[in-house]
Design a binder for these strands. Sequence first.
DNA 1: CGAAACGTTGACGCACGTCAATGATAGTGG
DNA 2: CCACTATCATTGACGTGCGTCAACGTTTCG
Lengths: 255, 255
Amino acid sequence: MSPAEPAEALRLFLARLMARSPLGAEDQKTVLGLPCTVRHFAAHREIVQLGQQVEHAGLVADGFVARFGQTEEGQRQFFSFHIPGDFADLYSLMVPTAPSALQALTATTILQVPHSALRSAAARCPAVGAAMWRDCVIDNLSLSQWLMNVGRRDARSRLAHLLCELALRFDFIGRGSRQGFSLPMTQEHLADALGLTPVHVNRTLKALREDGVVTLARGRVHIHDWEMLAASAQFDPLYLQLPSPSCHCAKGRGC
Amino acid sequence: MSPAEPAEALRLFLARLMARSPLGAEDQKTVLGLPCTVRHFAAHREIVQLGQQVEHAGLVADGFVARFGQTEEGQRQFFSFHIPGDFADLYSLMVPTAPSALQALTATTILQVPHSALRSAAARCPAVGAAMWRDCVIDNLSLSQWLMNVGRRDARSRLAHLLCELALRFDFIGRGSRQGFSLPMTQEHLADALGLTPVHVNRTLKALREDGVVTLARGRVHIHDWEMLAASAQFDPLYLQLPSPSCHCAKGRGC
DNA sequence: CGAAACGTTGACGCACGTCAATGATAGTGG
DNA sequence: CCACTATCATTGACGTGCGTCAACGTTTCG
């Protein structure tokens, strides 16, 4: 789909940082000059295992990564999804013993950036350090919304909320829009993100489809009615902290 | 209960930082010398409202604070609890427009520390900056576990997990132990943390009581059987990143 | 002492889970 | 290019954990 050049991924990451943090020319050069090792992971492969000591953070260049935990019975819960331009475990800079695992949901290209390089970049350019700290905090906001989702919304709202989030994030990196995007993910993956079962995700998707709101088929989401989707999710994009030039959200906030 | 001196709260915060981050003498002096304004909040009072611009972070000196979000129907979901020694919104340093609200669950004393002071402390002492960044990341780990809780555990496990977490945290600040602690919180508060209804929390507490695991009465938790409580929660204290000299947890990890 | 807040309990309903069968899709090797 | 097969999607019947509603007891506090 995309070349997944290292430089391209670093550019996406830089854009992500600059959407929330002002960076000078020197800062930008520092980010784009980060050293990295390219690694490929097959679908379903674990990138980082629970408890593993890591010495580098993983920047997604291509594909789809999830962070997750599981119960002793093997019930999984996804904590976050990471798309190209996201660091999947930037927090590992501060907690190098992985407190949760990382899995490639599809064939994925990861740029491993050594902690040492990130640390020296932060030391040399305080603005870059602040931007990365802010990035960790924004992960936090996202997690909060997922908790809200799972704790206090019904299946339909949860699913709608997740799809809204993904639409805006893919829009931001130029790989989709509010009309639709590619989502090479099984219904079981969605279930693990939403605290539901695959069967119920399927039924909920059917309901949304029959209401003419969204269609998910063959790895592609078609959003037929963004307004309705955002409304049934009570979606407020503020937490994504993304610039939204042409945002039409439920509450009209953060636009 | 306690004098809630500003110095005492800063000492607790310093201990919290030093449990995870090495700080030199100069760093410690910087933390203890942070300027702050003492403020009191009555029970149920909102400390920070959604969307509010804040210029200081709130260190809990005494009482109990929750961060939360709510649906349009007014359904609340707590994202975290904060006890003395915790900053309730350290992340506001990086995102000053509050993306979630803060409420005092009981009468609470807050030390408001200006962002400017925190920023200059971080600039002057990089180790303090790193410690605060790490503190934000640890919030993240906690949030992940709450999401796991709400998404993939039944009511009994959720409640047990929360009580385990609180026991260790109160133990760490010297206001409780694995045998019990003071918890001046209504069942509705617990429900909002666990994604349940107050009625079901009540029933679940009854079940735990009748099994001889824990008793919660008149604002006090008595843990009769820590092993059993930790086991039914599948509690792994690793995510709290606390030193546990005498920890007896379910999986024997992080001890 | 009175009133409001909180805790407790029972009866009943529903959203979602479980189980199981069948159909569609995609990846693989011949 | 086509079987072959594993994975994924779909659907129905049925079970259950938790929600809802409503009443009543208990504690707390002014």
